[in-house]
Amino acid sequence: MASTQRSGRSGPDALTDDDLVAGAHEEPELFARIYAALAPAVVGYFTGRGVEDPEALMQDVFLSVLPRVGSIAGGVAGLRTFVFSVAHARVVDHYRRVERRPVSVDYDPLLDDRAAPSAEAEALVRTGQTDAQLLIGTLKPEQRDVLMLRIVGELSVDDVANVLGKTPGAVKQLQRRGLKALREMVSEGVSAP
């Protein structure tokens, strides 16, 4: 009998290993269940990584993942790991594109309100970034990747190691150091730059 491991969620969006068994659902229904169960976490991962349009990038991930659902092993855990492997690759690609083609913005003197809060502070408020996102953004990139995949992606240490191409020991060390750095920033009352 197949396992009924859950995706970590409960309610109508819960996804079980039984849902992924061939023939358990019609293809559109299966895709809808997978999307409902994993899309919020993927958007959260992209938002935490500072992607400009997290919803668009999330849709790109699912366009890549859904045709391969039948070939993914490991049930819900394997599917989640695969989805976040693709998501992580999309983030890396996104930032490579951004670095190659910086965005140019025309100067508009009517929008220049530098006498008030700094332009950086205003931009962060407009993008809706929270203090937590700002603090996580101050971490080293590898620590940030590990924490985002572990917390937002709800991946195990082994799964994060597979996504990032690292050993489980390295992932644990990066997680420990990242959490320690965040604790120190919060306890010292240091606000993010």
Rank of each mutant, 00 (worst) to 15 (best):
D106Q: 03
A116M: 12
V186R: 10
R150A: 02
T130N: 10
G128P: 11
R97V: 03
P12N: 05
A132D: 14
L124C: 02
A2K: 06
G178V: 09
L20D: 05
G137N: 10
G50P: 05
Q133N: 08
P28T: 12
D158L: 07
G153M: 01
A132E: 14
L135S: 11
R80P: 00
D93A: 15
M58E: 13
A2F: 02
A56F: 10
P40L: 03
V152S: 00
G44T: 01
G189I: 01
R97M: 02
L79W: 09
G50L: 11
V43I: 13
R49I: 04
V76S: 04
Q175W: 03
A32H: 08
R97L: 04
D113F: 04
A37V: 05
R96C: 05
M185L: 13
Y45L: 15
D158S: 09
E55A: 13
V69S: 01
V103C: 03
G75A: 05
T127N: 15
E142H: 13
A89K: 03
P54I: 08
D159L: 01
E99N: 07
P117G: 07
E27C: 02
V43A: 03
E27P: 09
R101W: 06
V51M: 09
P67C: 06
L155D: 01
A73G: 07
S64H: 09
G153C: 06
K180G: 07
A181H: 08
E26W: 06
T138R: 08
A32V: 03
A132I: 11
Q5L: 09
R97Y: 00
A37N: 08
F46L: 14
D108W: 06
D145V: 11
T16A: 14
Y35T: 07
N162T: 12
S64M: 08
Y95R: 12
V98P: 00
G137M: 11
T127Q: 15
L63M: 12
V51P: 02
N162Y: 06
Q129S: 15
V152G: 00
A32G: 05
V171N: 05
S71F: 07
S10Y: 15
E188R: 09
Q59E: 14
E142V: 15
S3Q: 14
V171D: 04
L124M: 05
S156Y: 00
P12R: 09
L134T: 11
V190M: 05
G8Q: 10
D93H: 12
A192H: 11
Y45S: 09
R177V: 03
P40K: 01
E27H: 08
R33K: 15
L149G: 01
L66I: 12
V125P: 01
E26C: 07
R90I: 02
M58Q: 12
E120C: 03
E26A: 13
P28V: 10
L147Y: 01
V91N: 06
L135D: 09
G48R: 07
T167Q: 03
A121S: 13
L20I: 04
S85Y: 05
E27S: 06
L135T: 11
E188F: 00
V146A: 15
A89I: 01
L111S: 12
V163Q: 04
S64E: 13
G169W: 00
A56D: 13
L135H: 13
V42L: 00
V86W: 02
A87K: 08
A22K: 14
Q173Y: 02
E154C: 00
E29G: 04
S191M: 12
K172H: 04
A56S: 14
D158V: 04
D108C: 07
R80T: 01
G128A: 13
L164P: 05
F82M: 11
L134A: 14
Q143F: 02
G11P: 03
